[in-house]
Amino acid sequence: MHYPEPISKLMESFMKLPGIGPKTAARLAFFVLGMKEDTVLDFAKALVDAKRNLSFCSNCGHITDVDPCHICQDPQRDRTTICVVQDPKDVIAMEKMRDYTGLYHVLQGAISPMDGIGPEDINVPSLLRRLQDEEVAELILATNPTIEGEATAMYISRLVKPSGIKTTRIAHGLPVGGDLEYADEVTLSKALEGRREL
C-alpha cells in the first residue's frame, strides 16, 4: 500500500523500535494523526529530553541524569561490593528486589568474538581501574547465563584473581539461555543467595 510521505516517514521511525513491524507502525502512525497537537509535542519533547539528558555514569556505566549516578553517590551503599551486569536494565531489575545494597558496574554488553566484541569494547577496562582505585572486597558477576555472559564472567574472574578480590558468580536459578531481565524477582533473589565462588 502507498502512504503519503509524512505517514510513511513516521512509520519508518516507529519501525526502528524493537518488536514493531509495518502493521503496528501503520496503526501507531494513524493513531498519532488523531492525537491533539499538544500531546504530540509533549511526546516528541519527552523523546528528545530522554536522549539529551541521560548519559552513562562515568564511574559505573549505568544510565543516569547526574554524574556520578544516584547509586554511586549514595553514602548508605556498601562500597566494598560491586555487582557486574551486562545492561542498565539488569540494574533496574536488581534494584526492584531491594535486597542488594552494594554498587554496580554495567558492562554494556558481553565478550563475543564472532560479533567482534572484545573486552576493550565493553566496560571491562573501567572495571579494572575501579578495582585498583576503590576498596573492593567482593565482585559479584551477574552477567547473563548465556554463552557470552558466562565467558565474560570467567574472563573477568581470571583477570581479577591475582588481586585477591573475591569473585562470585550468580547461581543459575535463572532460566537457561534466558536474559536476566526476564527473571522474576523471586528467582533472582534466590540466585543471588546461592552465588558460588569462581
Binding site: 565478550i111 563475543s112 568474538p113 564472532m114 572484545g118 554463552i147 557470552e148 570467567m154 574472563y155 581470571r158
Partner: peptide, 24 residues
C-alpha cells in the same frame, strides 16, 4: 563458532588475548 572466530582473528600468528581464548 566463537572459538573459530578467535582463531581466525589471530590467523597464522599467536593468540593475542590468551585469557579470552582459554575461557572460550
Amino acid at each position: 563458532k566463537q572459538r573459530n572466530h578467535i582463531l581466525k582473528q589471530n590467523y597464522g600468528k599467536k593468540i593475542v588475548d590468551d585469557v579470552m581464548f582459554d575461557v572460550y
